[in-house]
Structures are given as C-alpha cells and as structure tokens.
C-alpha cells in the first residue's frame, strides 16, 4: 500500500503553513503526527494533492499553565504531554492520555492532530468538551478562538476552515474541588474505545451532587455532551451513579457498525458513565463552611 502522489511542503512558520494551505485550493491536508492521516493515505481513503507537514513549524510545542487553563501547542506529542509536570494539575487529561493507542502512537501523535482529526471515538475531544475548552486556529485573517462546543460538527469534521491550522488547545482547569474521571471500554487494550465517558463532578456541602458534567465518545458523530442536571442535589451513592448512566443512555443515539450494535453501545454508555461518576465523586472535595 502506497499513498497516492502528492506535493510536500514543510513550512517553518504558522504564516507559511497558512499560505501553503491557502494556495492549495482546498485540496491540502495538514500533517502533524500522522497517526490518523497516514493510514488513510496508505489506504488511499485520503488523496490530498498537497501535504503540509507542520512538524518543523516553530512555536507549536509549548505547554504552559495560563490563568484558568492549560495551553498546549498543537504539535505537543501525547507522550510528551503525559510526561509534562504541569499535567499533574489536569488529572482528567492525564487519565485520558494513558488511554490513547500504544507507546509508538503516543510518541508521534499530537494533541492538536487528535482534536483536528475529530475521530468520534478519540479521547481528547471528549476531554476538551467536558472541560468546556477551546482551540486557537490561525488563518489568512489572523487567529481566532473556537469553543469546543462549536468545534465538533460531525464525523471527522470540525469548524476549522480549509486554510486554517489549529495552533493551540486550551484545557480549562477543573472547578475548585471537583473530581474527574475518564473511563472507556475497548475490545483490546489500546484500541479505539467502543464507548468512553469523561466526567466532572462537584459536591455540595453535605455531600450531594452539585454540578455534574459528562461527555461521551464513540456514541455519535463527535464527542457527545450530555446534560446531567438531573443529578443535582442527589446523594453521592451508587443509585445516583446508575441514574446518571440512564441519563447517558437516553441522551445518546449511537449507530451500529462492524464493531458493535447500537444497543450495545448504549448499554456501554450507561455502564461507563456510572463507573466514571463513581470514580470521580470520591476525588471531589466538599466545600468548606
């Protein structure tokens, strides 16, 4: 299997990358870690006329704690982010990174690539959405910030324009005292998950659920945010987490495919959500009087 012939451009700045994309008449792909794009090219499911390799673009590999969020450059590799000391303050991100593929994939794959590729079963889009994060995209008219809620439009489709590149991913910090968990089910370790659940739980004084947030992966065309308002005020018990699972199952509308029928995915959504809630709640701390 060989990719179809293409023109290769290796810009060294964001401006050059944007210019290369703009000059390609919409038939270009951005190459970052290549762990999703290159298989598609090898299988000739993708045959871009131009490949814009951004691996030599300067300034896209930083990890910085800013006020209220972790700024991750688009080219930061999963393995490097997982090993970064600042990720300790982003436990949901840390948990999700361990679930991405295998070591050789995490060595090459990038945070920005995972978000921009928008595989519905990928972990990082779910993390970004449940945290209410955003990305920064650079285009011919400068940079713009896109909220995660507005970014994922459908299967492998984002709000990024053809001449834009994603330059930065912003993961907000958890609300004070909140706990989090990422739980997924995959047929084999390291495979794409059939279904995964990213959860954030904050407790009230007295231990009842304050805020609960859920984003599911693998059950729709993109990461699926689920309204968990129904759990507010409920006690932090197994019965509440099971009720959360039912909310998740009712809110999602998965498709059947080669890997799992829709009913099974819906059942997994319920079980993964309940497990994630049960893991996240003990990690939350009750507010002090």
């Amino acid at each position: 299997m060989k990719p179809a012939a293409f023109d290769y451009v290796a810009p060294t700045s964001v401006e050059e990358a944007v210019a290369a994309l703009s000059g390609a008449g919409g038939d270009a792909k951005v190459l970052a870690g290549g762990q999703s794009l290159v298989p598609l090219m090898n299988l000739r499911l993708a045959k871009p006329a131009v490949v814009v390799d951004i691996n030599r673009v300067a300034g896209l590999d930083g990890v910085t704690v800013r006020s209220g969020f972790l700024s991750v450059g688009a080219l930061v590799r999963h393995a490097d982010l997982a090993a970064h000391p600042d990720v300790a303050g982003w436990p949901l991100l840390r948990d999700a990174l361990e679930l991405i593929g295998h070591p050789a994939i995490r060595n090459r794959g990038t945070v920005g690539g995972s978000i921009a590729h928008a595989d519905p079963a990928a972990e990082l889009p779910g993390v970004l959405r449940v945290l209410g994060g955003s990305v920064v995209a650079a285009g011919p008219n400068g940079s713009r910030e896109i909220a995660a809620d507005d970014l994922f439009l459908g299967y492998l489709t984002t709000a990024l324009e053809a001449e834009e590149i994603l330059t930065e991913v912003r993961f907000p910090a958890l609300p004070a005292g909140a706990g989090s968990a990422f739980v997924e089910f995959a047929r084999r370790h390291g495979d794409f998950a059939l279904v995964g659940a990213a959860v954030v739980v904050a407790l009230r004084e007295g231990g009842q659920v304050g805020e609960a947030r859920l984003c599911l992966i693998g059950v729709g065309p993109g990461p699926v945010a689920v309204d968990m308002g129904g759990l507010q005020g409920k006690p932090a018990t197994e019965a509440t987490w099971a009720a959360g699972g039912e909310l998740a199952a009712a809110a999602c509308d998965p498709d059947s495919d080669l890997h799992a029928p829709a009913e099974y995915r819906r059942q997994l959504a319920s079980v993964m959500t309940a497990r994630a809630l049960a893991l996240a709640a003990p990690r939350a701390s009750e507010p002090r009087r």
Partner: peptide, 19 residues
C-alpha cells in the same frame, strides 16, 4: 515496522521518509 527515530519508537509505515 517499529523502529527508533531519535531514540523513540515509531511506526515507520506512518512516517514519510522525508520527515
């Protein structure tokens, strides 16, 4: 096809030689 590039394991079928 795993080999090492700058000491890190990579899948060499997913990397172009020019990279």
């Amino acid at each position: 096809c795993t080999l090492l590039v700058d000491g890190r394991s990579v899948r060499s079928c997913l990397m172009f030689a020019v990279q």
